[in-house]
Design a protein around this nucleic acid. Structure first.
Length: 273
DNA sequence: CACCAGGCTGTCT
DNA sequence: AGACAGCATGGT
């Protein structure tokens, strides 16, 4: 049983906020899978309890992955204060670039529940099965493993399927490691060389996998927030406004705004399960 | 049956 | 540089 001190952390908000796709609720906690790791986790007050995990999961890795050392952003107005209050304890995880890339290739023009379905399907079809006590999880396939065949068709990922196959093929012999050493602009340009990666998806990968906390992904929800609450019209105007208002950690605030808006939408419209 | 979903690509000004 | 249709699929 791994046990990690995690004061003020919210596992539920962190997993449900749409930054990360491969998890499911069990009666005993959350079954979380990422890259070559998988674990079962639940919270008990200030403690994060992990009764089952693959051997490559350590307390140090959990602290790193869940960014437990990160402080919550400071509110700058009423709306951001509401978002922070609702999302209390949420953290922006530090994902692995390859799985993060595929997740956000899957995300374009798509719903979060179906992104999760596609990502768990990719792991089930192309990854390796691991046993965690009574639970079964799957690792994420390495680059090169996702090949266009009947398994890929069965996922019904639509036009995104060819992005997966192309990225898999390319990165099998052309690693993403170099991106770590680049500044924000160069890293974004490098990612956008990959078919299916535009400015929004690149910002997600930079924020969620490369530690660029200032990267501010603008999707339909965040765009609506920036229009309705911050008087910005164009995407470049939204980027400027975000940097001015939210500063170096604008991307972290973005995640709070995104999760809060999706929650309020659900309450009003009854959408998304 | 419309329209939307964590957008991107190609094309036309 | 900016506007805009088309895109696979599923949900509301």
């Amino acid at each position: 049983m791994l046990r990690v001190h995690a004061p003020g952390f919210s596992l539920a908000h962190t997993l449900a906020s749409g930054q990360f796709f491969r998890y499911e609720e069990t009666g005993d906690g959350y079954l979380v899978s990422h890259g070559q790791r998988a674990f079962l986790a639940r919270q008990d007050g200030d403690e994060l309890l992990v009764p089952h995990a693959t051997p490559n999961v350590t307390a140090e890795w959990l602290e790193h992955f869940f960014a437990l050392d990160d402080a919550a952003p400071e509110p700058v107005d009423t709306y951001s204060a509401q978002a922070l209050a609702f999302c209390g304890g949420m953290r922006v995880c530090r994902q692995e670039p390859w799985e993060c890339l595929v997740g956000f290739l899957a995300s374009q023009n798509n719903h979060v529940p179906r992104i999760r379905q596609i990502m768990t399907g990719l792991a089930r079809s192309y990854g390796e099965r691991v046993t965690l006590g009574p639970y079964v999880a799957y690792t994420f396939p390495e680059p090169g493993a996702i090949i266009p065949d009947a398994r890929l068709d069965a996922l019904k990922a639509g036009y995104r399927a060819r992005y997966f196959a192309h990225a898999s093929e390319t990165l099998a012999h052309e690693t993403l490691e170099g991106v770590h050493g680049l500044d924000y602009d160069d890293a974004k340009a490098a990612l956008m060389e990959i078919p299916g990666v535009g400015p929004k998806v690149a910002d997600c990968i930079l924020l969620f996998a490369y530690g660029h906390r200032g990267a501010f992904p603008i999707d339909t929800h965040v765009a609506a927030i920036m229009r309705e609450h911050y008087r910005a019209r164009t995407t470049s105007g939204m980027q400027r406004k975000a940097r001015t208002l939210f500063g170096e950690n604008a991307g972290v605030m973005q995640q709070y705004l995104f999760h809060y808006r999706r929650h309020t939408m659900r309450r009003v419209a009854g959408a998304f399960s």
